[in-house]
Design a binder for these strands. Structure first.
Lengths: 281, 281
DNA sequence: TTGCTCCTCACGTCACGTGAGGTGGC
DNA sequence: TTGCTCCTCACGTCACGTGAGGTGGC
């Protein structure tokens, strides 16, 4: 029998860790002196401890280790646990590799400009959405798109199907804001209301997003900065650009928007550019 | 000005997160109503928040983010922080990749045998150590090595230079336990005592280790299992095997060992095999 | 006997999550 | 007026770390 100090030195863990495993029911001492509360371990408990430390080092939580080492009968649960952890590790490696590239892109960019002046690109998942959509080729943004939005909002309002999410524009051209732009105006609909012919905008597992405020003059330069950043981060565009209008001015004569999305001052506009991306091979 | 709920929806964070950043001094609301305590944010604070969320997603802690976004003057600290994090990420990826291989090796192994019966190989760093050493070619283990240990222990004891660490054996042969084994007996010395000609055993950044208890009959089969495991884990031996005697029987006539390392029953022997390894290219 | 070992609280870490219980705003 | 939003405690998470204050063992 070994005292806790000797046992802990052999396994190179702290006494507190052994206390914790005792309390957690992962590894209880072979014997506890009732008088003094002293914990005593047998030599072969070292092997049990090694097993625990191995699984912990591989990244399992103590709860998972309990399952993995628990009663011998549950082969399936044990196997599923290890398989699940394998996937977690694989995903985590891929994410860290992308993080590393993004960090390099950021460091490059902020050698002279500080981070505070760099365009901030965030990666996020875009959920699928049911929208009322209207797609057209227009010669320029000004006027046409506003009219399309007003018609779409009015149509959605008439059916009381408007969901509480921001309207957006899809740019179907590969060359953006070329002549005759192929744009699609989208108004999110509540999932319950299927009165209107809802179009489903597919989800994007990963999208590069920039949220900015102020008027639309800056959009082009932000989009350009975003493209440079994507390139340096090893990401590739894999779907149409979305321009989401979170906060804006609107002449709402035929419909009613919640006041919190509206503003009169263009300095308070909040807009988001979203580009679906995949990691370059 | 935006109320906290609207602001949080735009940035897709919880209200609690904003509370936390306020408290942490990372992002304080542009205005707080003194009557109600309500927090109000401006639209352009969204960009500050995005910056924070970006750095957090890259893996920085809130403290680090505070430094990274802090007063503009400290360029050097900011750059060092990003460089440091780059290294952290790189290391973390390499470690996860090794973990993944080790996990695969473990899953393979425990398809039929459960984890509880698998040989547990742990990876660890071995620190450099000053030892009293004596190296010889011996025809077999039995007898010779015991005599070498007793002589070495006696020599170390005479100079009162014995450190409180376990003695071990280095196997210099590539073919292990071949005929005429080239073994080196090592007794750890306290760093202060340099009276004896101490030999420095180099550190190993990474070593595969198996601790087992019981008599020495099992050593060969454990070593074999270890070799198979190393192969499957993508690891390569890069130094001599060490056999460390943590707990054992000894006839200590010319020296004195602390009683906690001694035992009379061979079932209570505690031994550790250590093999320095590197990741295969 | 002295110092070393071990014990049990109890609080801290990190970035929030999750109610509880109460008030302000439209 | 009613429901919705927001507020401030206060405690939980996870795997221990770090004393505080006291006792047992050799």
């Amino acid at each position: 029998m070994l005292r806790i100090g000797d046992f802990s030195r052999l396994a190179r863990v702290t006494i507190k860790t052994l206390h914790h495993y005792d309390e957690a029911g992962l590894l209880c001492p072979a014997h506890v002196d009732l008088q003094t509360g002293y914990r005593y371990y047998t030599a072969d408990q070292l092997e049990s401890l090694q097993r625990i430390l191995l699984l912990k080092d591989l990244g399992l939580s103590l709860d998972e280790i309990r399952v993995a080492l628990g009663d011998e009968t549950d082969h399936a649960a044990r196997a599923a646990l290890l398989r699940g952890h394998r996937e977690r590790l694989t995903r985590s490696i891929a994410e860290d590799q992308l993080r590393l590239k993004r960090l390099l892109a950021l460091s490059d960019d902020s050698l002279d400009r500080s981070i505070s002046e760099t365009t901030v690109v965030v990666l996020r998942e875009l959920p699928a959405m049911d929208v009322y959509a209207s797609r057209e080729r227009v010669p320029c943004m000004h006027g046409y798109v506003t009219a399309m939005f007003e018609a779409a909002e009015a149509a959605a309002a008439k059916h009381q199907a408007r969901a509480d999410a921001s309207p957006f524009l899809l740019f179907h051209d590969s060359e953006w804001r070329d002549q005759d732009i192929d744009v699609e105006v989208c108004i999110p609909l509540s999932s319950t209301a299927s009165a209107l012919t809802a179009r489903r905008v597919e989800s994007a597992p990963r999208a590069a997003c920039v949220t900015y405020c102020g008027n639309y003059d800056q959009t082009q330069s932000i989009y350009d900065a975003m493209l440079r950043w994507l390139d340096r981060s090893g990401l590739q565009i894999c779907g149409p650009l979305r321009e989401v209008y979170h906060r804006y001015g609107a002449d709402q004569s035929k419909y009613k928007l919640p006041s919190r999305v509206l503003t009169t001052s263009s300095a308070e506009y909040v807009t988001e550019l979203q580009v679906p991306v995949i990691v370059k091979a």
